[in-house]
């Protein structure tokens, strides 16, 4: 019983995340696994707020707050500077949201992956621009309501995990807060694999943006996994796939009905999403 997580106390209490914030939880597991010999880069996002009001920091390690589109480049700059100083041990991690990763920051991320920069890139994916009040990003899934897609998003979520795999980076993993030991293990694994860009996409349900109770972050994230919407898996060197947690018989309906951002859906809509999820899962399954 209980999770096996070796936490070092790096992330501090007193931060400004909303009550129950999934991102705060994710940051906790990421930072506390990384330990103190690390430097983080964060772009404008909830993370930037959570990291603390000047002159205080919640993150326990040096953090540089960069621009929304530059996380990967900024992290790479730090890593290269450390290398130039003969420091080969400090982990450099970019912690960005999905807007800063899937959208505006993607160019820098893709390029850093192509250069195989020796950094860990964490995407805290809450499927939209939640810090600005819930607008659509390319991580927003089909038919989800955001304030910029009031009738529901018309296109499916961009599959950045697979795009990152296609860069043949040494490590790509999907994780979520409802499986904290799996998440912490993946951060640890990313640390072990040095010498290239390691990407972890962490699904972090936004309580406000998704319309779920303050206490429902972990549970909602598990529903995403169990319904097959967000399988947890990892890929090494662009080809070795391992499934950690896949669907367990729950349906899309089990997932969407707990969230206000989907409350406009008709049964037909849910069936369409189910078909999309089934299709994606079938395609992914072939890779394991």
């Amino acid at each position: 019983m209980g999770y096996e997580i070796n936490e070092e106390k790096v992330f501090s209490s007193g931060h400004a995340a909303c009550p129950g914030c999934s991102e705060a939880l994710a940051i906790r597991f990421v930072l506390n696994t990384l330990g103190r010999d690390a430097i983080a880069v964060v772009p404008p996002s909830c993370i930037a707020i959570i990291s603390g009001p000047q002159p205080l920091s919640s993150m326990g390690i040096p953090v540089y707050q960069t621009t929304l589109e530059a996380s990967a480049a900024s992290a790479a700059g730090i890593k290269r500077a450390l290398v130039s100083k003969g420091n080969d041990h400090t982990n450099v991690v970019a912690i960005a949201g999905d807007g800063g990763t899937y959208d505006i920051g993607f160019q820098a991320l893709s390029a850093a992956a192509e250069r195989n920069e020796d950094i860990i890139y964490i995407c805290l994916d809450n499927e939209g621009y939640m810090n600005t009040g819930s607008q659509k990003s390319s991580a927003t899934p089909s038919m989800a309501f955001t304030t910029s897609t009031p009738a529901g998003k018309l296109s499916p979520k961009k599959n950045v995990p697979e795009i990152m795999v296609a860069h043949n980076i040494p490590y790509m993993a999907t994780a979520t807060i409802g499986y904290p030991d799996d998440l912490a293990r993946k951060v640890k694994r990313a640390m072990e694999i040095k010498g290239g860009l390691r990407f972890i996409n962490i699904l972090t349900p936004c309580l406000t943006g998704w319309g779920v109770p303050d206490s429902a972050g972990p549970k909602t994230s598990r529903l995403a996994v169990q319904s097959g919407i967000y399988p947890l898996y990892e890929v090494e060197n662009g080809e070795f796939y391992t499934l950690n947690y896949g669907p367990n018989g729950l349906s899309v309906a089990d997932y969407v009905t707990t969230q206000k951002r989907y409350r406009h859906l008709s049964l037909e809509n849910i069936e369409l999403i189910q078909a999309e999820v089934d299709h994606d899962w079938a395609r992914l399954q072939k890779k394991f």
Partner: peptide
């Protein structure tokens, strides 16, 4: 660092510089 854009070049330059 052979960057993919000037924007990223400057992004990397800033953080590298801030490491001293």
């Amino acid at each position: 660092m052979t960057m993919e854009s000037e924007h990223s070049a400057m992004a990397a330059a800033i953080t590298a510089s801030l490491t001293g």
